[in-house]
Computed example of a mutant assay.
Amino acid sequence: MTLRALALTAILGATLSACASSPPQTPPGGPGRPGGESGGPGAMGGRQLFISPAGEPFRAPVGQPYPVAAWFAGADANHDGALSQSEFVADSLRFFAVVDADHDGVIDGFEVSAYETRIAPEIVGGAAPGLRRGPMGQGPGGGPPGEDGSPRSRRGAGLASNVLQGATLYSLLAEPEPVMSADADFNRRITRDEAAKAAKARFALLDRDKDGLLKLDELPKTPAQRMAEDGKGLGGRGGPPRRR
C-alpha cells in the first residue's frame, strides 16, 4: 500500500470514529420543546406558561411564581395592586402593536400566522389529551358572542367539543386563539378598535364582583396552573394526567 493510501485510510478511520462517538441530535419538537417527548402542556423544558387575555405569552421556570404575576405587574401601570379597565385595555393594545408588525393598525392573516408560529407556538399544538371540562366557549372560546359583546374564537365557535384547546390551557378565559377571537366581523382582519372592544368584554367577564377592578388573587387560575399546583404532571415528562 502506498504512503498516500495509508494516509487516506487513517483519515477515514478517524472520521468514522468521530461520527460513532458523536451524540445524536435532538430532532425538532424533541424534549423541552412544544410537542416533544418530555414536553406535555406546561412543561416546555422546565418552564411554566401563561397566555394573557390579549394572547401574550409569559414564561417562567418551574419553581418560580406562575407568570400570571409577571403579566399583572406589567399591566398595573400605577402599581396600586389592581387593574382598572383602562389599564387592562392599554395592556391589550400594547400587545396588539407587537403583533401588528407593519404598524398599519390592522392585524392581517400573515401577522396572525407569525403570532401563532413565532410568538406563541404552544397554542397551535392541538387539544390537550385527557383534559376535559364543560362545554367550551361560553362567550370567549366557543359559542356565539354574548349580549355583552364578548368575543368568540373562530377555532372554538360552533364546536360541541369540551376539550381544552390551544391557549385555553394557559389562559384565564376559554379562548383557544385570543388574537383571532377579537375578529368580531369574521373577516380575518383585527382592527385596533376590535382589539379594544374585545379587551373591554374580557375585562367585564373577569370582573366578577363588578367593582371595576381586577386583583391578582381574585383572578381564576388557569388549568395549567391548577395542574402544576396539584402536581399532576406539568413538569419533567409531565403532560396532562392520564386516565385511569
Rank of each mutant, 00 (worst) to 15 (best):
G166Y: 06
A43Q: 12
G212Y: 01
R189P: 00
G235C: 03
G134L: 04
A182S: 10
T15Y: 01
A97Y: 00
P129M: 06
A77P: 05
S52M: 11
E194R: 06
S52R: 10
P145F: 10
A18P: 00
P223L: 02
Q48M: 15
V112E: 09
V62T: 14
P67L: 12
S38I: 07
M227H: 14
N187P: 09
R226I: 06
L12V: 05
G231K: 05
M136R: 11
P223G: 03
A128Y: 02
G233F: 03
A174S: 12
L159S: 11
L205F: 03
L219I: 01
C19Y: 07
D230C: 02
A70F: 08
C19P: 00
A97C: 00
V89D: 06
L3S: 11
G239K: 01
R226Q: 15
A7H: 01
F203M: 15
E147H: 14
G158T: 08
P61Y: 05
R242Y: 04
T26A: 10
R94P: 01
G143Q: 10
A201R: 02
S22V: 13
S21P: 00
E111N: 10
Y115L: 10
D100L: 04
L173Q: 12
G235M: 03
V124Q: 15
R226D: 09
Y66E: 00
V163R: 12
L205R: 02
G149R: 05
A97Q: 07
R133Q: 10
A14T: 14
E87C: 04
D209E: 08
K210P: 01
A82G: 09
V62H: 15
L83P: 08
M227S: 12
S113C: 03
L206G: 01
M227I: 04
A157H: 01
S181P: 13
R132W: 11
K221D: 08
G105V: 05
R192I: 00
P65E: 07
D230S: 13
G239T: 13
G139I: 12
F110S: 10
A60Q: 06
L234I: 11
A198K: 03
L213T: 06
G141L: 13
D108I: 01
Y170K: 07
P31Y: 15
D102I: 14
D211R: 11
P223R: 02
P178T: 07
A82R: 14
P145N: 15
L159I: 00
E229N: 13
H103N: 09
Y115G: 01
T222Y: 04
Y115D: 03
A160Y: 13
T168V: 15
G134P: 03
Y170W: 14
Q225D: 15
R237D: 00
P240W: 04
G109P: 07
R188M: 08
K232N: 10
Y170I: 15
I119V: 15
L213K: 12
E177F: 07
D211I: 06
F58L: 04
M44P: 02
I107F: 01
E111R: 08
V163E: 11
V89T: 10
G126W: 14
G29T: 11
Q85G: 03
L205S: 02
R243A: 13
D185V: 13
P145C: 08
V112F: 07
G29P: 05
G134T: 06
L131C: 11
D102H: 15
I119E: 05
P61E: 05
R118E: 15
P28S: 10
C19H: 07
P31G: 10
